[in-house]
């Protein structure tokens, strides 16, 4: 995959079956590096951000902020997130600045179908994670 632009063009041409029945909308964002905001229909609150790093394609979905974490349950939350990291298909938990996120990293050589599967799985994982970890949040 040479550029995000090219990737988005090919993603847009895929039918929704390839995207796990989800409907994605792609919007490039201005900035120092190319970032594309992927809005998922009916899950507009949980957009996915696509960006091309050196050797990988990153798909990032922000989940909650530091301030939303119940301080008394912080350690338990961390442990639960680590416990879930491997069972969770294709995605992993992360923290970027003061926000917790869920992300998937793909090789830049991945096929457009692989990227679509990644996005669909990531979106499902994100909704699931909000539900599963709600107890640890305010």
């Amino acid at each position: 995959m040479k550029s995000l632009h090219q990737l988005v063009e090919r993603l847009s041409a895929l039918d929704s079956e390839r995207c796990g029945g989800l409907i994605f909308d792609y919007q490039p964002m201005p900035g120092e590096v190319e970032v594309v905001q992927v809005t998922v229909q009916d899950r507009e609150e949980l957009p996915i951000y696509l960006t091309m790093a050196d050797t990988q394609l990153l798909c990032i979905c922000y989940l909650w902020g530091e301030s939303e974490v119940d301080p008394e349950r912080r350690t338990a939350l961390y442990a639960a997130m680590l416990d879930m990291n491997i069972p969770m298909p294709l995605s992993s938990f992360a923290r970027i600045d003061d926000r917790f996120a869920i992300f998937g990293a793909l090789s830049r050589d991945s096929s457009v179908e692989d990227v679509a599967l990644e996005l669909a799985t990531l979106s499902d994982n994100a909704v699931d994670a909000l539900e599963a970890f709600a107890d640890y949040l305010h």
Binding site: V33, E45, W64, D97, L130, F133
Partner: peptide, 26 residues
């Protein structure tokens, strides 16, 4: 790249184009 991307995303939410929902709201 992630830092730069985060900055762009932060600016996007800061500019009032979109809002960031809390986990519960979402």
């Amino acid at each position: 790249s992630v830092q730069k991307a985060t900055r762009s995303i932060g600016n996007h939410f800061g500019s009032g184009n979109s809002r960031l929902y809390s986990a519960r709201e979402s």
